[in-house]
């Protein structure tokens, strides 16, 4: 039964992903070919994985936030902050030792955790709506990132730093390993502990969860911190990839792509059940869409129109009103509150 459900949730996203990849084959015969060059696997598929890494990462964080009925608009700015901190820490380093690298990673990630915690506190303790609470850092975070970089695109000459986003391990880009690690951690934490259950419970019915003894405030705090951490890692990858810090443009509009990936992956914006695997596929769809548009030779900016249509279709399919009007499912008006009150008869 559960397997069947998972299948239906993942079915359409997978089909869409395959479809996009197959379309590429018509324009580029060698699209699916992967070859070993200088001990590195190269090819379009590897490229999609590598370039998609930051998006997948923040989408994983975003999935948990959305599962609690929240949203995190600040991830794009956190990416910029993290990249800026990481790059600036090692910008003047001439040595080749790995000390500064750890320093850079540690510093960025700790700050991103704090920043995520700030969002979480505003949402869970102060009671600000998630959109509003994270809007603050969406605006200010980018300013802080620019402050750190001095508004310049600062180039990093410290070689080890390039390993995070540009290095290879066992013939695969290192960023793929990072994504795999974070994904596995997220799956382990949410599915092998009760955390996932609590998150879904809080997102589905926060009042009832409180009465069942769940500390919903802490759960919310935690997911925003995790989202901040994911964005931090993504920021390091992006900045290491180009060996520079760019406070202005790093991570611009990533939050919107991430929300899109989560929604495509089958997690509802109304909170509750979440699908990490679906999210990963959703992010891959968005990344391959971008790649495809490049390879077909359509102006890259058309991407935005396609994305807009995808968002609309997905949301309409999730809307009960739309399904009722179009497919005629569920004729009764879902006035939950009244039904609850008039629950008269019988089992």
């Amino acid at each position: 039964m559960l397997k069947g459900m998972m299948k239906t949730k993942l079915f359409w996203p997978i089909i869409v992903l395959i479809l996009i990849l197959v379309i590429n084959l018509f324009f580029d015969r060698s699209f699916f070919s992967i070859e070993l060059r200088n001990g590195h696997l190269t090819g379009s598929l590897i490229d999609i994985l590598n370039r998609g890494a930051p998006l997948i990462l923040i989408s994983i964080g975003m999935t948990l936030v959305i599962a609690t009925k929240g949203i995190d608009l600040s991830v794009g700015s956190i990416i910029a902050m993290s990249g800026a901190i990481g790059a600036m820490t090692v910008a003047d380093t001439a040595s080749e030792g790995s000390g500064p690298l750890w320093m850079a990673i540690g510093l960025s990630l700790i700050i991103c955790l704090v920043v995520g915690g700030w969002n979480g506190l505003l949402v869970s303790r102060v009671g600000v709506q998630p959109i509003v609470a994270t809007l603050i850092l969406m605006v200010a975070g980018r300013g802080i990132a620019q402050l750190i970089t001095g508004g310049q695109i600062t180039t990093v000459y410290y070689e080890p730093y390039s390993f995070i986003g540009g290095g290879y391990l066992l013939t695969l880009p290192f960023s793929v390993f990072i994504v795999a690690f974070v994904f596995l951690m997220a799956v382990l934490l949410t599915r092998k502990t009760a955390l996932g259950l609590f998150i879904e419970s809080v997102g589905s019915n926060a009042d009832a969860s409180r009465l069942a003894g769940i500390n919903s405030k802490n759960i919310m705090l935690m997911v925003y911190m995790f989202s901040g951490l994911c964005a931090g890692v993504a920021g390091l990858i992006l900045s290491s990839n180009v060996m520079s810090a760019d406070g202005n443009n790093a991570g611009l509009w990533f939050e919107l792509d991430a929300i899109l990936a989560v929604v495509i992956g089958g997690t509802s914006l109304m909170g509750g059940r979440f699908y990490l695997m679906g999210t990963v596929i959703g992010a891959l769809i968005i990344q391959s869409l971008t790649t495809t548009i490049y390879s077909i030779g359509v102006p890259a900016e058309t991407n935005l129109v396609v994305k807009a249509l995808v968002v609309l279709v997905v949301c309409l399919l999730q809307s009960a009103e739309f399904r009722r009007k179009v497919f005629g499912i569920g004729k009764v008006k879902p006035t939950g509150e009244q039904k609850g009150r008039e629950g008269v008869t019988l089992s």
């Binding site: 919107l256 929300i259 935005l304 396609v306 249509l309 968002v311 949301c315 309409l316 809307s319």
Partner: peptide
């Protein structure tokens, strides 16, 4: 369709910018 304004206008944002690039 009782959609969230946030998401609908997000799509509108993508659409309008995409169209201007087109």
């Amino acid at each position: 369709y009782n959609l969230q304004p946030f998401i609908v206008t997000l799509a509108g944002m993508f659409l309008a910018r995409g169209l201007s690039y087109m």
